[in-house]
Structures are given as C-alpha cells and as structure tokens.
Computed example of a mutant assay.
Amino acid sequence: MFLFTKNFDEQKARAMAGLRKALEEGKVDEDIIPLLEKINSLENYFTTSSCSGRISVMEMPEFGDKVNAAWLGKWHREVTLEEVLDAIGRHSKGQLWFLVRSPILHVAARTMEDAVKLLNLAIGLGFKYSNIKSVSHKKLLVEIRSTERMDVPLGENGELWVSDEYIARIVEMGNAQVRRFKGKLKRLKGEIEALKE
C-alpha cells in the first residue's frame, strides 16, 4: 500500500474546518450535504469541493468567458418554465445561454488503492467522466463527474432567437437530466459504505 500523502489526517482536518464554515455560510448545495457527510465519515477519504449539479441561465460577453459572465438564474433542482422565462427577461447584453451541468465532487483519498476503489464505484454508478485528477505527494484527488450537460444559445444583446415553445422543450430536457443525475447521487450515497470494506 503506497501512501501518497504523508499528512492526510491534517489535510482532512483542515478540509473539514473549511466545510463547516461553508455550511454555516450557506455555501453548500443542501441536497448534497448527506452524501458529503457519508464520504467524510470514511477514514480514508474527504471531500474538497462539490456541486450537486445545476440548471442555469447565463449572460456572457462571449461563450466561455465565465469571468465576466452573469448568472440570470441558477437552480440546483428542477425548474419551472416561468422561472426560466423570468431569468431570460433580465437579459440585456452579450450572449444568452441555457446551461445544464452535472454534479461534480472532488474527493481526496489516502492511498492509490482507495482512489481506485472510489473511482470504480463512481463509474459503475454512471459517473462516466470520473477520473483521478491529481497524483502527487501533496494530494491524491478523485474527480466524480457525470455525463449530463446542455449548452443551448438562446439569444444575444437582448434579442431572443427562440420561441417560448422551444424554451419549454429545453426546460423539459434539462429537468429530465436533473432527475437522472440526482438519481445517480442518491445511488452513490447508498453505495458509499462499500468503501469501508
């Protein structure tokens, strides 16, 4: 058993202090908290960051410029057409996008064997884009990611390119993706105990 991180327990203690602070400040997606608690209760793992997946309406100067982008609406759950239309109504400049992003978790593992066990579990549960993100003496990090994603351009500089009927369809598709990845998160929470063995 090759131990990558000599001070794993110290790192975990620091990460847990940071998580407690983020929880107090309401900066953690509520529906992922029970999964984080389960992972962090395991001796050989701890979470460093997470997102439970989201639907958003975003305004950006040009695609990919997230630094200068503005959220017009962001939800870590299914959304209504009215919520999305309300967010779209705030659009004034730049490109307008409807986006779906799958959950992402970064989990530090004590050993390479631990990392591989977590990676195999995640991939087996449908988190197909999962990988070992970092391997060094400082950190051994597993990234848990799923495949659900949508990038739909809706308009530019206040002009809407699509109809309300089209928006209703993409909202339905986005919500279906949310249901799918929330189901995967639920299964991961149920199976994470297997890592104790």
Rank of each mutant, 00 (worst) to 15 (best):
I192W: 03
K21S: 11
A108T: 15
G94T: 07
K133Y: 08
G174F: 04
L81D: 02
L121F: 11
W71E: 00
L140Q: 00
I167W: 11
W97H: 12
S92H: 13
K93C: 10
E148W: 06
K196M: 15
M112D: 07
L36H: 05
N44L: 06
E59I: 06
R149A: 09
W161D: 12
E37L: 10
L154V: 05
K186E: 03
L19E: 04
E25L: 15
N175D: 09
G26Q: 01
F127N: 01
D29M: 00
T48P: 01
E83S: 04
E143Y: 04
V84L: 04
S134C: 09
N175F: 05
E37F: 12
L19T: 14
E148F: 09
V28N: 08
E191V: 01
H91N: 10
K184V: 12
G94M: 01
M173C: 13
S130C: 09
I167V: 12
L85G: 07
V67W: 13
L3P: 07
K117S: 14
I104L: 13
V142Q: 00
E43T: 10
I104A: 09
L19D: 02
S130K: 02
W71A: 09
G190L: 06
C51A: 09
R77E: 05
V171C: 11
G53R: 03
V171E: 00
T147Y: 12
N157D: 15
L118R: 03
A70P: 14
V152N: 10
L119S: 15
F127E: 01
G94Q: 00
G190F: 09
E172G: 13
M60P: 08
P153C: 05
K189D: 05
F8L: 06
M112S: 14
T48F: 02
S41F: 12
M60A: 12
F4N: 12
S134M: 08
L35F: 10
C51T: 12
L81F: 12
I144H: 02
W161I: 13
I104C: 05
P103R: 07
N44T: 07
E43C: 09
E24C: 04
I33K: 01
R110K: 15
F8Q: 02
T47Y: 06
L195W: 08
R110G: 04
I32M: 01
A115K: 02
T47P: 03
S146W: 04
E172F: 10
A122T: 03
I192H: 00
S49G: 13
E37S: 11
G183M: 11
I132N: 02
V84I: 13
G73V: 01
L188G: 00
S52H: 07
A17D: 06
G174A: 14
L99C: 09
T47K: 12
R54E: 03
L72T: 04
K182C: 03
N120A: 15
V152D: 09
R145A: 14
P61L: 00
